[in-house]
């Protein structure tokens, strides 16, 4: 018995190490080759994304590497692991490696200011991506506008409801900047549709939690018409609960993000709509902008009071939308 179990243990360890081997191999090929025989000096861009356990950023990374290959840019990539300290040291590493430019997708706004200043001192340009920092000198911001996306999703939902009805809101991580911006966007949309009433405002940080929260909201407010979820996972969890309660014909749900499961759910009529931030495109835009900056192009586009290369997001809807009142 023991021996058998031990064997399977060894096997699983072998499996794990095998996988690790694979992934590291693919990584090194992805980050471009290091032979510098080509005449043009290959540009090197350091990229740190806040959290690779989030599917959204997995797609962003794909976009970044696709575009980098096209433009012959070498990407030094780091996963911030949702940890500010980790990310701080990653930026420091980029500085000591003397990369040509840093694309920073900060986990939090304030604590990463020193990292930006360090890059400033070393004369390395910094582009913030998707979220910005509150200090230091950055060349430009690249990404979609969370406020605009929040408004887009709200307007889609309210338009579908014909401008009146009761809705529940499921926020994401309390206190996070995206949560705050979505709220601003939602409020903008609510101003345009005064007939919409928010009857419940809760938060969830996972699909499972969103499902539980939605079940409880349904108990307290069985007569709601729609759900505005701050992200796709929460939207899917809410939809799970609504389907389990057999109310999918009465209550519609919108999400934000454009993740694969959410896009599927929209196609199947489980979600009314989601706002696709087009992570692949957003990733590509980051590298395109980086190349522009390094080639000396001046970025002048403005949005929400800052230099901003805006990624347009789009509302994706499916069969549910067609039943619009």
């Amino acid at each position: 018995m023991m021996k058998k179990l031990f064997k399977s243990l060894v096997c699983s360890v072998a499996l794990v190490t095998g996988l690790v081997g694979c992934s590291s191999a693919s990584n090194s090929s992805g980050s471009g080759n290091s032979d510098s025989t080509s005449k043009d000096k290959q540009l090197v861009v350091g990229v740190t994304l806040s959290q690779m356990s989030d599917p959204f950023f997995v797609n962003v990374k794909q976009g970044i590497f696709d575009q980098a290959k096209k433009d012959n840019v070498k990407v030094v990539f780091a996963d911030g692991q949702a940890n500010t300290a980790t990310q701080l040291s990653q930026v420091e590493d980029f500085v000591s490696k003397q990369v040509d430019l840093i694309v920073l997708n900060p986990t939090e706004a304030d604590p990463l200011v020193p990292a930006v200043k360090e890059a400033n001192n070393a004369g390395i340009p910094v582009i913030t991506f998707d979220r910005w920092v509150t200090g230091g000198k950055t060349v430009t911001h690249v990404g979609a506008s969370a406020i605009e996306i929040g408004a887009q999703a709200g307007e889609a939902l309210f338009e579908y409801l014909g401008g009146k009805g009761k809705i529940a809101v499921i926020e994401h991580i309390p206190g996070a900047s995206t949560t705050i911006d979505r709220t601003k966007g939602l409020d903008e949309a609510l101003k345009k549709y005064p007939g919409i009433k928010v009857v419940a405002r809760q938060s969830a940080t996972s699909r499972a939690e969103a499902m539980s929260v939605m079940e409880n909201i349904l108990t307290a407010n069985p007569d709601i018409d729609g759900v505005y979820a701050y992200n796709d996972d929460n939207a899917l969890g809410a939809s799970d609960a609504i389907i389990a309660a057999k109310k999918q014909d009465k209550i519609v749900v919108t999400g934000v993000g454009g993740t694969a499961p959410a896009l599927d759910a929209v196609k199947q009529g489980k979600l009314l709509a989601t706002v696709d931030i087009l992570p692949l495109e957003e990733g590509k835009l980051a590298i395109k902008t980086a190349v522009d900056v390094l080639k000396g192009k001046k970025i002048t586009e403005q949005h929400e009071g800052r230099t901003w290369v805006l990624q347009q997001s789009k509302v994706v809807n499916g069969p549910q939308w067609d039943k619009k009142k």
Partner: peptide, 10 residues
């Protein structure tokens, strides 16, 4: 291991 096997996607 879970993140790697799934590629981060649900």
């Amino acid at each position: 291991v879970t993140l790697m096997v799934s590629g981060g996607h649900p």
